[in-house]
Amino acid sequence: MLSEFFSLTVLTGIAYSGIRLATPYLFAALGEMFAQRSGVVNLGVEGIMLVGAFTGFAVATWTSNLWLALFCAAVVGIIMGLAMSYISVNMQAEQGISGIGMHLFGLGLSSLLFKKWLGSTKAITGFQPIKIPILGDIPIIGEIFFNHNILVYIAFLLVPIAAWVLNKTTFGLKIRAVGVKPEAADSLGVSVARIRYSCVTFGGMMAGIAGAALPLALINLFQENMTSGIGFIAVALVYFGGWSPTGVMLGALLFSLVNALQLWIQVLDKDKVIPSDFALMLPYIMTIAVLAFGKRTNQPAALTKPFERGSH
């Protein structure tokens, strides 16, 4: 088994799948990162993803237009993100708990609409792999990195863009200020509410896209509760990544690579020496272990703390 394991097919297979699988985590976690940098934890990512997944699949089924499907999922994500902003910013609700409410709402709504409007599911043809010219022809490297569908490329391209927005633009500066010292930002004339609204809403949009990426770019089909925990893991990955886009990306990659790895272990381990359950635990244990023994960053000081003008 061991010799088989270090074959080229297996290693490229793990790398390729790891990158592909990271896509929904990356979309959702990058969005959530912006929300958290502005001081709001949105635990409802999973619920928004589910509604996004349903919307994407339904629109793709009805129109066969994948970009329209993605757009509609993003719009639905924006609406749910706006709701979450209102709950967190205006109503100053306890964020851990309102997120659980949002999750339940999205879980129920996506199933309900599926039953009401579709009832059964038939595979769609999702985004197809695009081989990048020249780069895609490099042996091994090309196969691993440059033969994915468009959403995979977009997800990874968003990482440097997010880093640039956060660290190099005035808007990013405002976000960081609002997440650390909202009173100070407020006194300098930055609207804490507006910044948080934009970040949480952006997070909602990304969660909607992340959800839609499942039927449109990875699975081609819809099933009730199909995210089964991805949204929660995405929230955890923001903590893992120390609130930086690169860190979040590394977290998503680590988690997905270990997941791809454990599936290969199962395939190659014919006699089931390692119980599949332990293989399945690997990604979770690895994530905790790496964080426990790695470098850590402090969380945004105002995380989960509602801001009210004049109360400080």
């Binding site: 097919t9 297979g13 799948s17 929904p24 199909m226 995210t227 599936l263 290969w264 395939v267 190659l268």
Partner: peptide, 17 residues
Amino acid sequence: FSDVSLMAAAAETHTKA
């Protein structure tokens, strides 16, 4: 019984194998 995306990943691993 319900993890659809892990099931998809498993299927993909099978095809790679």
